[in-house]
Simulated scan of single mutants.
Amino acid sequence: MKPATLRAWSKVHTWSSLICTLFMLILALTGLPLVFHDEIDGIGKPERIERWNDAELVSLDRAIAAALALEPGAVPIYLSFDEDRPVVNLTSGPVGDAPETAMRFHPIDRRTAAPPQGEAPGGGVMDVVLDLHKDLLLGTVGEYFVGAIGLCFVLALVSGVVLYAPFARKAGFASVRKAKTARTRWLDWHNLIGGVTLAWALVVGLTGTINTLAEPITAWWRADALAHLARDHSGPIASYRPGIADAALRNAQAAVPGMRVQFIAFPGAAFSSRDHLAVYLQGATPLTAKLLTPVMVDARTGKVDGVAPMPWYMKALLLAQPLHFGDYGGMAMKLLWAVLDLVSIVVLGSGLYLWLRKPRTARRGRAA
């Protein structure tokens, strides 16, 4: 590689690293507890296996009515289902297309048509950690900023590989020059650890960036794949009427047999249209459970208007979300993700140390 090219890549690596290092440290530190969010949320809660008889459960619409009674004047936006107990979770708001900040969350036990006993409304400390990790508590602007930081991080990784490749070819991969100065040894360890964790860091950086684009990706999909099923794009949002949720689920599962429901999006929601209930069905395997099949059901008649398979970019988003936190392979994968997260903190810290310990003459030459 020519010296001029090497210097250009060195500048790219230095400045992309400096721009993202502080924020990546925040993301790495907040990401560590999020890997174990299920376990942390379960601290202090008795672990028990719940059993129930499906025939004794109240209907979905009765559960929805119980949740709406807690917030008079609200309308349903999403209905999700717990996997290990007969509890549905209604997300409601003043209107069907309400922003996330105006939404409220109400779990309802279908055995009693009431909120589950012993649960307090509202989120805990992990919700704050998630918001800090997702958007630095800055909302949508912060989410896009985190996405830009993710791209900067990927650029730093790629430029680091370009710079390390000539050294690896000459001295061998993972070589540490023990006879050199402390800064040189730190540089070799920085390159070694960065090279070992490169694949994981790229996966986490890219999936994190994809996750920050969930809103525009969903809007694109809604305008593309769902547009032909909507009858009136500018008309009023169809009103919820009792009985429609049970009918929608029953007809959707009849249209796509052998699948189970993950959630239902009501008219106006980002994952539906203005005149449909979108019933999202999932498979039974760990992989197919992440890839959803939406069935669009007429909000007025309950009849299936069509099945809208997810396009590739929505599949990428749905797969990126759990992969980012290692939610695929149980505790073993979570532990691996945690170790790699800690190692990435060492890489980020060592990179900052190397820049701060750069000889003053080199800095003056670079400034000139």
Results as ranks from 00 to 15, higher is better:
A4K: 15
T5M: 13
R7D: 12
S10Y: 11
S10L: 14
K11S: 13
S17T: 11
C20V: 08
L27M: 13
G31Q: 07
L32Q: 00
E39V: 01
E39Y: 03
I40E: 09
D41G: 07
D41I: 01
I43R: 11
G44W: 08
R48W: 04
R51E: 15
D54V: 06
A55G: 13
A66H: 06
L70I: 00
E71N: 14
P72F: 05
G73E: 11
V75Q: 08
V75H: 07
I77Q: 06
L79D: 03
S80K: 05
D82K: 08
P86S: 09
V87G: 09
T91L: 13
P94E: 15
V95Y: 12
G96Y: 06
T101W: 11
A102M: 09
R104L: 10
H106R: 13
H106A: 12
I108Q: 09
R110L: 13
A114K: 12
P121Q: 13
V125R: 11
V125H: 07
M126F: 01
M126I: 05
V129A: 13
H133K: 10
L136A: 13
G142E: 08
E143K: 13
A148F: 11
I149N: 02
G150E: 05
C152Q: 02
V162H: 02
P166V: 02
A171Y: 10
A174K: 08
S175Q: 09
R177W: 04
K180H: 11
K180W: 05
A182G: 08
A182E: 11
R183T: 03
R183M: 05
R183L: 05
T184K: 02
R185I: 04
H190T: 02
N191C: 02
G195R: 04
A199S: 14
A201M: 14
L202C: 12
L202K: 06
V203R: 06
T212S: 15
A214T: 08
I217S: 13
A219C: 00
A219G: 07
W221S: 10
R222Q: 14
R222G: 06
A223I: 00
L229R: 03
R231F: 04
R231P: 00
H233D: 10
S234F: 10
G235Y: 06
G243F: 05
I244F: 06
I244W: 03
A248K: 01
L249R: 12
N251Q: 14
A252S: 11
A254P: 02
G258D: 11
V261L: 14
F263V: 01
I264C: 07
A265V: 04
F266G: 03
G268M: 04
R274D: 12
D275I: 00
L277Q: 08
V279Y: 05
V279E: 08
Q282F: 00
T285Y: 08
T288V: 04
L292F: 09
V295F: 04
M296E: 10
G302N: 09
V304R: 09
V307F: 04
A308Y: 01
M310Q: 15
P311K: 06
A316P: 01
L317V: 00
L319P: 00
L323N: 02
Y328P: 00
Y328G: 01
G330H: 05
M333Y: 01
W337P: 02
L340S: 08
V343A: 15
S344G: 06
V347K: 03
S350V: 07
L352A: 14
L352K: 04
L354V: 04
W355P: 05
W355Q: 10
R360L: 12
R360I: 10
